[in-house]
């Protein structure tokens, strides 16, 4: 179980057991990204080995460079679990028309060997 509420500078993180969805949404430029994401890394370490399936749903409009580093580490952990046979997929949302956000998503995708969908959202759509 993990549920972290969003603040102005940090995203909401929530695990939905029924749909096997781990969702991160919001803005991500916390004071200390490594500290902020530490509970999620702990959760992944404890829970991920038992999960046969996980959908990673991401909708972050802006992430700073240290959050980007954390995101890459999360995706690496998920890829390792997929290599063990788990059904892991990524659904990455970005604001349609924002090329920079699309570039970032594609940069993440090109290094990963897991299903990775990049999906446009109406710009300014609320975080869900």
């Amino acid at each position: 179980m993990i549920a972290i509420e969003a603040t102005k500078s940090s995203p909401r993180i929530v695990w939905d057991e029924e749909t096997n969805t781990l969702e991160i949404s919001g803005e991500s430029y916390p004071e200390n990204s490594f500290e902020f994401f530490a509970p999620l890394f702990e959760w992944l370490q404890e829970q991920l080995p038992r999960l046969p399936r996980l959908v990673f749903r991401v909708h972050i409009r802006y992430m700073n460079s240290s959050s980007t580093k954390c995101m890459l580490d999360i995706l690496d952990i998920l890829t390792e679990r997929a290599a063990e046979g788990a059904d892991i997929s990524v659904r990455w949302y970005y604001d349609a028309g924002n090329e920079r956000a699309l570039d970032l998503a594609e940069e993440f995708r090109e290094d990963l060997e897991i299903p990775f969908e990049i999906l446009p959202l109406e710009p300014g759509a609320p975080y869900t």
Binding site: S33, F34, S66
Partner: peptide, 11 residues
């Protein structure tokens, strides 16, 4: 102990 990934300038 690092608080950044050292990529801020490149970004």
């Amino acid at each position: 102990g690092a608080t950044g990934a050292g990529v801020g300038l490149i970004d």
